[in-house]
Structure formats: C-alpha cells, structure tokens
Computed example of a mutant assay.
Amino acid sequence: MSNSWPSGVGRLVLPEVDSTNAQAARMAQDLSGPYWIMALRQTKGRGRRGRDWHDPQGNFAATYVSRPGGAVEQVAQRSFVAALAVHDALVDVTARPGSFALKWPNDVLLNGGKLVGILLESIGQGAQVGHLAVGIGVNLLHAPEGEGGALRPVSLLSETGISVTPDEFLDALAPAFAKWENQLVTFGFAPIRQAWLNKAARLGERIVARTVHDSHEGTFEGIDATGALLLRTAQGRRIIPAADVFF
C-alpha cells in the first residue's frame, strides 16, 4: 500500500473471485467505511447491460464500495467521479495526459480505443441506495476481442509500451478517486461536470446514441446538470439519460 493511500478507506486483494462487484455486495453490510476490493482474476466479470467483461491475468479489476447516501440520481454521478479518477491514475502511471479521453457515459479511451469500462450497481432497495459498488476494469496488459460496431479494445501495454501491475494501478487510483469524491461531496456536480467535459471524446462532433428502444444521431453538445447526454438532432435537442454511444 502506498503512502498516499486515502485515510479511512479499506483495501482487500483477492487472488480470484467471480466478480468484484458481486464480492462487494456480499461484504457491504459488514463494512464500517468505504473499501476497495481488487481481484487478480475474475471468473464472471460483468459490463454494462449484463455483457461479459473479459479479464485475463494481469489486467485490473476492482470495485469501490461505499455508502454515499442521497437520491439515486445523485449517487449515479459517481460514474463521472470514477472516470475522472481513472483518467488521473492513467496519467500518473504513464505521464501521457494527451493520450486519454472520456466517452459518455463511463468509458475511458486510449488513442481512440476502449481501455476502461466502469459499472455502477446499487446494493439496496427503494429510492435510497444503501451501498454503491463502482466496478472498474482496465486492460493493463491484454485487450479482448472487439465486438461488431463497438470501439476497438486496446491495452495500456500495446498502445504505450508501459507495463503496470494491478497493485501499482490501485495505488494511483485510490487517492485520485478520493480527490474527486471529495469534490463531489463538497461542491456538488458542477465542477465534476466541467472537469469531465474538458476531457470528453468527440465533443461537438456527430455521434449515435442508442437506447433500448430508439437510435438518435446528432451533434454531441455535452452533458446537463444531472449528467444526461445533450444531443442536437434534426428534430431539436434531446436529453438522453441512458444510452450506448457510437462514433
């Protein structure tokens, strides 16, 4: 554990687990404070919308579990906190700030390819979230096979030649996450929103946003005060709370 590890945050490293988010759900009720749970290997990693997340040995798989409080909409803004924290950690371990960008809603890109996936899952019922699990997967050494229509997966090693261990990455990520979490709690979403927009991929360009039922093409104008996508289409501006984005 590094000297910059945030005070009051626990750390658990497992050799193998089904998924770190699932482990967080099992542990949540017994935790007295926030915790990082990292696994050197996941056997059933998950991505958004129930997709499989492939996790070869040497890649990063971890979950930050906490009890943030507040309404579901506010809790969900931790996806932007996580993206900014991962961005900062990547810059820290590579010294290449211009190589990374943030893709709405919660991916981190390296040289235009998908490097990082982030998955938020609530642990609890009703309008108030009991605990929140923020799962983060980073292709440190290996990139999985690409899917049709999706961005090409990349690894940190293949794109930069830099080899980083999961432990080293967690040492960089935990203090970065604590910094942005403190920003959100202290000042609200506005500074998080602006910082995210400063690093956003394809801002002002044409994108496609696909929801469960519809597909919308237009100019990516930013995100609103809640984090929803702002898309200027031929029919006018649309505010899209949840979708998959394609370039």
Rank of each mutant, 00 (worst) to 15 (best):
V164L: 00
T165W: 08
I162Q: 10
D167A: 13
P144W: 13
S158L: 07
G137I: 10
S155I: 07
H131N: 13
L132K: 00
A143N: 10
H131D: 14
V129H: 03
P166K: 00
L173G: 12
L157A: 14
S155H: 11
T165I: 02
L156C: 03
H131R: 05
E145G: 10
Q128L: 10
G130L: 00
I162V: 13
H131G: 14
G161H: 02
A143M: 01
V164Y: 04
P153F: 08
R152Y: 09
G149A: 05
V138C: 07
I162G: 00
T160V: 03
D171W: 01
L132R: 00
V138E: 01
E168C: 10
G135E: 00
A143C: 10
V154C: 15
P153L: 02
G149M: 05
E145A: 13
P144H: 08
D171I: 01
Q125Y: 13
A174Y: 12
L151F: 13
T165A: 13
V154Y: 15
L151V: 04
E159Q: 12
E147P: 00
L173T: 10
Q125K: 11
E145Y: 09
V138Q: 09
S158M: 04
G149R: 02
N139Q: 09
Q128K: 02
L173K: 10
D167Q: 14
V134W: 07
H142W: 04
L170Q: 06
L156S: 05
T165Y: 09
S163W: 06
F169N: 08
A133R: 06
V129L: 05
G137H: 04
P144C: 09
E159A: 15
Q128F: 10
G148M: 09
L173W: 09
G135W: 00
L151S: 01
L151T: 02
L157Y: 14
A172C: 08
E145K: 07
G137M: 02
E159N: 06
A143I: 08
H142E: 11
A143S: 14
F169T: 01
G148A: 14
H142G: 00
D167L: 13
Q125C: 08
P166D: 03
D167W: 03
G146F: 08
L170G: 05
G126L: 09
G135I: 00
L132A: 11
E147A: 14
G130M: 06
G135F: 06
V129G: 04
E145M: 09
L170I: 04
A143Y: 15
G130R: 06
V138N: 04
L141G: 15
P144K: 06
F169S: 01
G146Q: 12
H142M: 01
A143D: 10
A172I: 03
V134M: 13
T160L: 09
V154R: 05
R152C: 00
G161E: 03
E159M: 14
V138H: 03
L132S: 01
L173E: 06
L173H: 11
G126C: 02
Q128I: 04
V164P: 08
A150D: 05
A143W: 12
E147Q: 12
S158D: 12
D171V: 04
G126M: 04
V154K: 08
G146K: 15
A150I: 01
F169Y: 12
G148Q: 09
P166H: 06
E145Q: 14
A174Q: 09
F169M: 05
R152D: 00
H142I: 07
L173D: 07
P144V: 07
Q125P: 01
G130W: 07
